[in-house]
């Protein structure tokens, strides 16, 4: 399945208002594929001002993004497969409604570095 297919099948076309897109900026299947399911999103200031004009599914995602929330949680909340949530999140990020926070790594395997692991360990031991 391509991400374009899933998007079209669900929504029947673009539902983010056209003004939200700048010329030349399009959804990229490649970019959305790169977004891991644990990637976090937060709603932007733009979303606070203009989300009422969004289609309901997009608005739900923006509202979830008032607190840090992951792509996989969005999928579960909307009851859609994670792949569909990933495309919807990409749409909103491209339109400036969401900021995406990717995992951080300092090695090629993508694993978190020692500084982050140390913080994780401290946080878990404090529980």
């Amino acid at each position: 399945m391509t991400t374009g297919d899933s998007y079209g099948a669900r929504s029947g076309g673009r539902v983010v208002p056209a003004y939200a897109f700048t010329a030349g900026r399009t959804r990229s299947a490649g970019q959305s594929q790169d977004m891991p399911i644990e990637a976090l999103v937060t709603a932007t200031e733009l979303a606070g001002r203009h989300s009422s004009s969004l289609d309901m599914e997009y608005r739900s995602i923006v509202e979830l993004g008032c607190q840090p929330v992951s792509v996989v949680e969005i999928g579960a909340a909307l009851r859609v497969p994670v792949g569909v949530a990933r495309v919807l999140v990409s749409d909103l990020a491209n339109a400036g409604y969401l900021k995406v926070h990717l995992p951080q790594s300092d090695d090629t395997d993508g694993r978190p570095g020692s500084e982050i692991l140390g913080r994780l360990l401290d946080g878990l031991r404090a529980r």
């Binding site: 990229s28 990020a93 491209n94 400036g96 995406v100 926070h101 990717l102 951080q104 300092d106 500084e115």
Partner: peptide, 16 residues
């Protein structure tokens, strides 16, 4: 897409 920096140790910088 408005991705946050993915490199370790770099803080999130807001744009705009």
């Amino acid at each position: 897409m408005d991705f946050a920096p993915a490199e370790a140790g770099r803080g999130r910088r807001r744009r705009g």
